[in-house]
Structures are given as C-alpha cells and as structure tokens.
C-alpha cells in the first residue's frame, strides 16, 4: 500500500520507433496463427451459415448465398436447446462456484500455514486432468447407471423411486458439467484468495463487522477477480459442451444442448448452414452475456 504512491511514476519513453518494429516482429507468429486458425475459419463459418441448398444437388450440397433465413429457422427449431444450454451452463457454474469457493478458501487462506497441505490439495484438484475428459465422463456413466451399486443402494434405501433413472436426466448433465469444470473454477479462485491480505479482514472486524458481514463486504469483493475468471472459464465451455449432454454419456433425448444439435447437424443431418448458424448464435450469445457480466460485476479495475 505504501508503495502505491510510487506506482504512478512516469514511464520514460524509450526509442519508440525501434521498439515497435521489434514488437511487431515478435507478434508476427502469433498474428499469423490467429489469421490462419481463427479469422479464416470464422469467416468460413459465417459464409457457411448463409448458404442455401444447391439446385438439383444431393443432400449435403450447398452453394454460397445470402440466406439469412437460416438463422430464423434454427432459432425457431432449436430455441429449447438454446435456452437449455444456457440454463444448464448457468446451473453448473453456480454449483461449481458454491463447491469451489470454500475449497479454494481453505487451500488459499486456511492452509497458508501448511504449504505441504496446500500443495497436496492443489494436486488433488488438478489430478483429474491426468485422465481424459471422455474417460472420466464415461466412468461417471458407469457409476451412476441404473444397475450401478450407488443407484441400486439408493433405491434399496427408498431414496430414489424404483423406476427412476439418474443418467439421461437434466440433473445428471448438470452434475457432469459441474464435475468436469470444477478445476477451472477452483484454480482462479485459489490464486486470488491466496493473495488475499488478511489484514483487511481484521480491519473489517475491528470496524464492528461480524464474520458474515466481513465475508460479504470485504472477502467477496476482494476475490471478485477470481470469481469472474472462474465463472467465465466454467460458463463459456459449459454452454458449448456436447459430451456430458450426449446420449452416449450422461444425457438423454430430452437433455440435448446446443453442442449436440450442432454436432448432429454437421455430422448426421449434413445441414452445414444450420450448424454454422447455430455456432454463430452460440458465440454471439456468449459474447453478449460475458460482456454484460463483466460490466455488471464492476471488476474492470480489479482484473
């Protein structure tokens, strides 16, 4: 804090022209990569989304056009999937946050005195990454299938109706999404909480705030950068996820998300314009939601 006064010291401009040329040179590989693998496919996707079926063509043959009706069609055909995608992603984000915050708080704040424990717990958080995402989700499918030990036990204890299922329900999909994205929530939360200056919490309690108020008024606002980063890292991929909701994994016919619809349109129905239009909608919706979220959470100056 005492050094904050020095941080505004002016930066001395050093030979700007020469430096900018070197900077440009160093940026070149990155820029080329972006143009080749991001901008080009994006334009191609945009163009595909406006295509129309080729005259006298086979299934899967399209020609370039300005067929914006594609967007109207997919919106009216797939609006439940769009709503479901964001609903599931939101639920998974909230659950992951509720689960990760205490965990990250424990590792980053309470366990500070024991670096060994901190390290061990962080390894445990990251450990699932050592096994493929698909394998882990398949394992959950096995563990939670109708014949599995867990489900038969729950049924035997009358905690589940005898004819109920777990896999194929929205709950199973949200469970899978939450499980798969928890490390992406925990790690950013941990990095901000690990740097949390406990003297602010002491100052809060010195100023008559009870522990809950200190948490609400001091801890949460100070960990906002981690919360924003974690929720974005969870929400964005969860909204576009097509593995958990897939019939082959934890989902069922009624739990299809946008990712599944895009996959089906691209690979099964060969309706490329519809798939491309859905992809663009997904991307735009996420951009708008994230923009509003970052603006509303007021963390521009904290990020």
């Amino acid at each position: 804090m005492a050094f904050a006064a020095f941080q505004t010291a002016e930066v001395v401009p050093q030979a700007p022209r020469k430096r900018s040329r070197i900077a440009l040179f160093l940026l070149l590989p990155g820029l080329l990569y972006l143009v080749l693998f991001f901008v080009t496919p994006l334009i191609s996707l945009l163009l595909t989304s406006l295509q129309q079926p080729a005259e006298f063509g086979d299934i899967g043959q399209y020609e370039y056009a300005f067929n914006w009706q594609n967007y109207v069609t997919v919106m009216s055909d797939y609006w439940p999937h769009i709503v479901r995608s964001f609903g599931y992603a939101l639920a998974a984000t909230v659950f992951a946050l509720l689960f990760s915050y205490p965990l990250a708080y424990f590792i980053g704040v309470k366990a500070r005195r024991w670096p060994m424990l901190q390290g061990l717990m962080l390894v445990l958080v990251i450990a699932p990454f050592f096994i493929s995402f698909l394998l882990r989700t398949l394992a959950w499918k096995q563990l939670l299938s109708d014949e599995s030990f867990i489900i038969t036990s729950l049924k035997a204890l009358s905690l589940m109706a005898p004819d109920a299922h777990f896999t194929g329900t929205p709950f199973a999909v949200i469970f899978g999404l939450t499980y798969n994205f928890i490390p992406f929530m925990t790690l950013p939360l941990y990095t901000t909480l690990e740097r949390l200056d406990l003297r602010y919490l002491e100052a809060g309690s010195d100023l008559y705030a009870n522990p809950f108020t200190v948490f609400r008024k001091v801890t949460i606002p100070l960990s906002m950068p981690g919360i924003v980063a974690g929720t974005l890292l969870t929400f964005i991929p969860a909204a576009g996820d097509y593995v958990n909701a897939s019939r082959d994994f934890l989902g069922g016919p009624d739990t299809q998300m946008m990712g599944n619809v895009i996959e089906a349109n691209f690979l099964v129905l060969l309706n490329y314009p519809a798939a491309a239009a859905l992809s663009i909608i997904l991307m735009a919706a996420i951009l708008v939601l994230v923009g509003v979220y970052v603006k509303r959470s007021g963390t521009e100056d904290l990020l």
Binding site: M1, D197, R199, Y200, E202, A203, D206, A209
Partner: peptide, 27 residues
C-alpha cells in the same frame, strides 16, 4: 473483535482497496 468498543489505526492502514475513501470511513 467486532463486539468490542475499540477501534484501531493499523500500521499498514488496511484501507479497503475496493471502496472509496468515503465508504471506508463510513464502514
């Protein structure tokens, strides 16, 4: 601490960085 009729001026000041000066004082 929050139940004691005591206030502290901390050596590190411990001003809440996410609040304005006014909000800090009114806390």
């Amino acid at each position: 601490a929050h139940e004691r009729p005591v206030n502290t001026v901390f050596q590190s000041y411990a001003l809440f960085p996410h609040m304005s000066v006014l909000e800090n004082v009114a806390f």
